[in-house]
Amino acid sequence: MTLPRFDEPKAKPEPRFDPRATHTTHDWAHSARLLCCRVDPTGRFVCAGATDHTVQRWEIATGTKVPLAAHTNWVSALGFSPDGATLYSGSYDGRLIAWETAAAAPQPVRTTPAHEGWLRAIALSSDGQWIATAGNDRLVKIWSAATGEKVRELSGHSQHVFCVQFVPGTRELVSGDCLGNIHHWNGEDGKLLRQFEARDTSFLIADIAPFGGILNLAFNRDGSRLTAAGHFKVSNAPAGNRRAVATTFDWKSGERVVRQESVKEERDATLWRAVHHPRGPMLGIIAKELGFWEPESVELFHLLKTPSEMFDFDLHPNGLDLFTAHFDGHLRVHRCAPA
């Protein structure tokens, strides 16, 4: 029998997923406000879009930061190919730019003038062949990842389109606009299959400006639920008086199943993004806080405070780490496990 040496390193136990124990592990600074972030599917890089017109790429293992500069306006949307090899960035300049994710000094591989006005959202089909974009020109567009050619244009929203997602495992899409409408499309023929609505999340101010709507859409793991993030209970829009809200639909029936008023306390906030964690709970960013709740519940079970307002976040493929993009220019890393 061999006894272990006293100084032999013990094998670390696998971290246990525990959202109640979520804590911040890293804080990486950039000099400009961050608007969006995405983690590459291989888990090596996290990228953030900034108001200095750059994409910032951090290597997660080292925290090394590399700028990707080619846009001419705020970088508002990011997406990765399923293999992580290609990063797509979208900007208020209306352009979609493809980059080689892991290049030492990434340069644009392809630049596509995708939308008139602001490009708001990017989504990748699960087979990686299609890229969907959405913008202020009221359009959803599908692009070929192989050629960069436009495959199809989906017309039907009557105002700015804020978000787009592929229905998991299909070539169908959902898109949400600032009026609170959700469109379900067949990407193969461009036909509108059906519409959902959460119009009580949109407020038309003085018959001039819509405020709110569907800011983000997320499916759960088995595709049976679709959750829309946004705000409601707007009392004074120019002053930002509103409450964060998530609205979850049964995907098959289109019925609303849960209305999650994410923050019970009276405070001004928008739910900019909510996602279903593969292990069950939902996560969302509410002003300076990360909120956690069970999908069928209307109660938050945990809130993590951060130093600055967040406008986007993403999960690491390990299911434990998540990354938040902040107004103060910092990208923060949090672990959903005990320290």
Partner: peptide, 20 residues
């Protein structure tokens, strides 16, 4: 032409209000 007091969401509101 009232309502230009955009302490919040200034850019989205100006997009619509200036167009109006």
């Amino acid at each position: 032409h009232a309502g230009w007091d955009f302490h919040h969401n200034n850019f989205e509101f100006h997009l619509h209000y200036v167009a109006d």
